[in-house]
Design a protein around this nucleic acid. Structure first.
Lengths: 250, 250
DNA sequence: CAGGTCGCTATTGTATACATAACGTATTCA
DNA sequence: TGAATACGTTATGTATACAATAGCGACCTG
């Protein structure tokens, strides 16, 4: 190997996977488009073997689809697929919350969740919320959801939730960003924060059913708002991941 | 390539994946054991590239675990992991049943489900159930669950349920076989069949909440019975997939 | 002019060679 | 005698060469 420059800091496979995911989520590769291995080799800088491993992983992740005659294409999602994915994740998170409540959680484990809660409260105190604060919110919200998932102490469940969040629009950050396009955004965030508060309370009091119910309601709210947001598509450039939605004409 | 005989009827990657999965589920590879690529190349007859693709797929499937320093090992599961996986699948199937009920299903779509139901009824009429009949039951039950999942008409959900069933003990066939070790096996199957009947009825009458609740109860019953079955481990050789359970001493 | 077939090209599937990193062992020094 | 280091071996990570197939176009024939 002479001319190819190899970045030895991370594995070629991971590098290729990250690069390709980026291309897909940024919309550089359109839904339905076939991914050429050769082209991927050029754009990622890895050779064919790691590129192929990355393609297999991205297929399992749900971003790509295998073409029967060989190769992969970028998967396209309907609006229904997206709202189902959010509801799916909400259902899984509901189960996680129930497990946490039923199995018991120490005060020490709950600590970081409460810190998240307080930090979000502080952000939401501002009216209207600034762009920077909103970006912090997205991070904190994702952290809250991740911590909550961990509380279930169920590796199989955590794994499934991670999988369900792989699709960007189904991740906490994803749908928060979509909702942000709505005029009622701040009101929505305040309601969501109330849900967060309730689920913590339910877990503390070991009320499994209530913890589960509120997380499912949380997701249903997200689905309703996403639908609204998709109606007024004006601000949707906020969410590049929506490049994955297949257009009606395709 | 001279001495290696290549089976060209199916792709080498698929061949390797099937062969390796077989080795894992049959217990030829013990949980926690490292899988050597070279050894896999010898036992599967494929070369390293397809073997590696198969290993990546099996990792995503949940049967293998990546070792940080490189390579893969057979994943080990605790009893808790297994019961969580069953409950997880039940929750997902509950959501599928609810989607089916809420979105409406035509009589024609329900037809194959009802045929399944009738066929199972016939089998359960025999007391005690014969070994052959039990084997038919396993097949019919798996078919019923698959058809029910399809009724949701939600590709993301169907995909997740398939993933959740990848672990053999979490699949309908898997836990039915585990339950069969119990003395009350036949009684259990009759109750399960009642659940099947109720979920169909609920879907027909578009009662989403009821459809969901019964599927979750269905899974909870399975979890309870699996726990019982694991207590009297006498007949567990019925379920080779339990080879994946990590022993207390490991 | 239209339809079919043959052949070429481009792309994926497979195999293997090479590089590199990790682990185990042996030897040496404190 | 024990511990640490260095070296060798083995396995994985990566690159590329080779094979086969599918898709496309052109040419020929009816």
């Amino acid at each position: 190997m002479a001319e190819r420059e190899v970045d030895r800091s991370i594995s070629q496979t991971v590098k290729a996977q990250l690069a390709l995911r980026d291309q897909i989520l940024s919309g550089a590769l359109r839904p339905g488009e076939r991914i050429s291995e050769l082209q991927a080799v050029e754009t990622t800088g890895a050779s064919r073997t790691p590129v192929r491993m990355a393609l297999v992983r991205l297929e399992e992740e749900g971003l790509l689809e295998a073409i029967p005659s060989g190769g992969f294409m970028v998967k396209a999602f309907s609006e229904r697929d997206i709202s189902d994915s959010i509801e799916l994740r909400g259902t899984l998170e509901g189960l996680a919350a129930r497990f946490a409540a039923e199995r018991g959680v120490s005060a020490r484990e709950l600590e970081p969740l409460k810190e998240c809660l307080a930090a979000i409260d502080e952000l939401l105190g501002q009216v209207p919320i600034s762009v920077d604060a909103f970006s912090s919110y997205v991070t904190l919200n994702a952290r809250f959801h991740a911590l909550l998932t961990e509380l279930s102490r169920s590796p199989p469940l955590i794994r499934q939730i991670d999988r369900a969040s792989a699709l960007p629009f189904a991740s906490p950050s994803g749908f928060v960003m979509a909702q942000s396009a709505l005029p009622e955004a701040q009101q929505i965030l305040i309601i969501a924060q109330e849900h967060h508060r309730v689920v913590i309370d339910a877990i503390e009091n070991r009320e499994g059913a209530r913890a589960e119910a509120v997380m499912r309601e949380h997701a249903r709210l997200a689905v309703r708002n996403l639908r609204l947001a998709l109606r007024n598509r004006t601000h949707l450039d906020l969410l590049p991941a929506l490049a994955l939605i297949k257009t009606a004409t395709d």
